[in-house]
Simulated assay, not measured.
Amino acid sequence: MAVRVLFLGPLRDLAGVPQAEYPAPLDWETLLAAVPPAVAEQLREPPVHVACAGMVLADKADLAARDDDEVALLPPVSGG
């Protein structure tokens, strides 16, 4: 039983992998403890969003991923 976490954009570089699997269930504090420290630091920043099962969470602390869910870590979008 696992949750797949996708590291997108610069978070992928910080994680060193495009995705990882962590034991389910996965909440916000468990996610922060599971990912590499540099990623956890970025996740605490307001512009980084978290999506779970295809839905962007209004509050990252509400993360409640279950077995087979996919969590996407969404860095701020840049461009012009």
Rank of each mutant, 00 (worst) to 15 (best):
P18W: 04
E21K: 13
V71Q: 04
R66H: 14
A20W: 07
E70P: 00
V17E: 15
S78D: 05
P10Q: 12
A51T: 07
P36W: 01
D68I: 06
D68H: 14
R12W: 07
A72F: 06
V3S: 08
A61Q: 14
P75A: 06
A53M: 05
L14F: 10
G80V: 05
L57Q: 11
P76L: 01
P46S: 10
V39K: 00
L14N: 05
E21T: 13
V50R: 00
T30G: 12
D59M: 13
A24V: 11
F7T: 02
R44V: 03
Q42H: 12
D67E: 14
R4T: 15
M55V: 15
L26S: 03
C52H: 01
G79D: 02
L63D: 00
D27T: 05
P25T: 11
E29T: 14
E70H: 01
L73Y: 07
V39Q: 01
G9N: 08
L31F: 09
R12Y: 08
L43I: 13
V56I: 15
Q19V: 09
V5W: 01
P36L: 06
D13Q: 12
E70D: 10
P76E: 04
V17Y: 06
V71T: 04
V71I: 10
D68Q: 14
D67R: 12
V3A: 08
R12T: 11
G16T: 10
T30C: 10
C52N: 15
C52F: 02
V17L: 15
P75T: 03
R12Q: 13
L63S: 06
G54Q: 03
A61K: 09
T30S: 15
A2P: 09
L43F: 11
L6G: 10
P75Q: 05
L43Y: 07
A38I: 00
P47T: 04
L26V: 08
L43V: 10
D69W: 04
A24F: 06
A61L: 06
V35R: 00
W28R: 08
A65T: 08
L32R: 00
A33M: 06
D69K: 02
